[in-house]
């Protein structure tokens, strides 16, 4: 553990990522009390107001304060990211561990299901799921969660396969421990490293995916202060008022970037054998 922190601290980029994420979390938590304006309050006078004293980052076409909406948007994005990544983590890990541990037909069936889900490009699959479920924040979380489940299943399965043959698992089995006990007590703790890394990266994906779905109009409620919706609205105003699209775009990029560098840093620190490769 000490070794982990030492290695992680040396990666200045990853530490910076963590700091930025912490900053976002603070913004998100404080949004209801600290946001300078009501994120929904409209005013024809403040329509497209430039960044300045009243509106630090300007106002959108409805005269809503962009900074306040970004703060509330952080809440939304982090929540979508956390729950979507959580759904994928739990469902994927469970399926992957079962497949890896029991092998045979369990593995065959679960792996094929994952292969099939894996065979659709992520955004298209999320779009179709959203079309089935209908637009809402909860459904966005579910759709993104389903889309990223196979990645976790694959990682959990591969890790389980390699841990399963280890001596301590054999020992537990020979002592008559039940399968569930072994999975929970002996295997899970030993496959957490790659799962933690993937969760961090999935957080980044989920924020991007929510923005993309909302951008296409199949995401959260239209007046929600989602970064993706703000970007979609802003895109039409680029020339009149660059701040409407630029700040949400920066907010998304910075958040995703932070989760990515954090994921890279965790990977290097947790498992030196896994060198940072492609996404």
């Amino acid at each position: 553990m000490k070794e982990f922190f030492r290695r992680f601290r040396r990666n200045r980029l990853a530490v910076a990522g963590l700091v930025v994420i912490a900053f976002y979390v603070v913004l998100a938590v404080l949004a209801p009390v600290a946001a300078p304006h009501d994120p929904y309050a409209m005013s024809a006078d403040a329509m497209l107001a430039e960044p300045g004293r009243d509106h630090w980052l300007g106002a959108d076409p409805f005269g809503r304060d962009i900074f306040s909406r970004l703060m509330h948007g952080a809440r939304l994005s982090l929540m979508v990211g956390a729950i979507a990544a959580g759904i994928a983590l739990i469902a994927g890990t469970l399926m992957g561990m079962l497949a890896g541990y029991f092998g045979r037909w369990v593995d065959a069936v679960l792996s094929r299901i994952m292969d099939i889900l894996f065979s659709f490009p992520d955004i298209l699959l999320a779009l179709v799921i959203m079309a089935i479920l209908g637009p809402s924040t909860v459904n966005v979380m579910i759709a993104i969660g389903i889309v990223y489940t196979p990645i976790f299943a694959r990682i959990a399965r591969a890790s389980t396969l390699s841990v399963k043959e280890a001596a301590f698992v054999d020992a537990a089995r020979s002592m008559g421990a039940r399968s569930m006990h072994i999975l929970w007590r002996h295997i899970l703790p030993n496959i957490t490293a790659p799962l933690i890394i993937q969760t961090t990266l999935s957080f980044a994906f989920a924020i991007l995916a929510e923005a993309a779905l909302s951008f296409l109009g199949l995401g959260v409620e239209p007046d929600a202060p989602s970064w993706g919706i703000m970007l979609n609205e802003g895109k039409n105003w680029m020339e009149h008022a660059w701040w409407v699209a630029v700040f949400p775009g920066l907010a998304i990029t910075l958040a995703v970037l932070s989760f990515n560098v954090l994921g890279d840093g965790l990977r290097d620190a947790l498992d030196p054998k896994l060198r940072s490769s492609g996404a």
Partner: peptide, 25 residues
């Protein structure tokens, strides 16, 4: 129309009507 609906929603809140917007294909 999605934009106008957001404004109507804010205006109706002032008389106690709370509208949830559903934007569909």
């Amino acid at each position: 129309q999605v934009a106008a609906a957001q404004i109507v929603k804010q205006q109706l809140i002032e008389v106690g009507i709370d509208v949830e917007l559903i934007s569909e294909e």
